[in-house]
Amino acid sequence: MELLGRRDLWWRRLIVAIPYLWLFVFFALPFLIILKISLADPIMARPPFSETVSADNFIFLLNDKLYAITYLRSIVLAAAATVLCLLLGFPMAYGIARSTPAVRSFLLLLIVLPFWISFLLRVYAWMGLLNNYGVVNNLLIWLGVIDQPLQIMYTDFAIFLGLTYSYLPFMILPLYATLERMDLDLVDAALDLGASRTAAFWDITWPLARPGVVAGCLLVFIPAMGEYVIPYLLGGPEAMMIGRVLFDEFYFNRDWPLASAVAIMLLVILVVPIVFLQRNQAREAESAA
């Protein structure tokens, strides 16, 4: 490859180096610092961790059931919210992708409109909806469905609703992007060849929408897993999610090493399935090429 001069090659390397440098400074370096802190002991000093190296924090995490339960609850809640987001988001994304261009841009605007308002305020608004004298309970009592207010606020269900509401747009947008690109003739062709509408959906639409489904699920599941604000505001005092544990360990207990260990564990739990999914997709892409 003598086509590229030395200077071009250097330029190329420089351009490729910029994102790597960025990732190194703002991801790898902080990650290594956190990893180092997670291996230290908490001490009353500034900074509040020792220079020692031990796996004590991880052993503690693995032996204390409370942490295991909290991780599990986070996974279950995040997964449930992801599933509901997919069930709600798929038909919405499909509808938007199939509407006329003018209607489409209006609907897309509606999807992103909530971002104009602070995330914190929107979660606060859910408190007003869900509490014992909130809109939902008042409406149900007024309709005569219930006599006594339901305890929705400060339950896992409230967290689940909050997560679903907050992350729905992150499901809809990647799904919309894949569905919008899909050739409508493909579904017609399946119908023409004898597939019912349901069969055509599972044979054609669903497999072709899969990259969007995967992207949407990751975009919802990962941040939902580490969510701190929603369980803090909508969940009960004992309804812990791992993001809240992380914050409490760090901020109230000032146990930086343990908090770091919690963060590392969270990363491991998230990274393993993602790597698995990506390898799967890469293999599929390879077999297609």
Partner: peptide
């Protein structure tokens, strides 16, 4: 359409991109 004795060749061809040639042909 799925109950008519009629088949169509689309202008865009509408070949299913995620299926091999033989799977495409066998679909009907």
């Amino acid at each position: 359409p799925y109950e008519r004795p009629v088949n169509m060749m689309f202008q865009s061809y509408a070949v299913f991109p995620h299926m091999s040639v033989e799977k495409n042909i066998a679909y009907g």
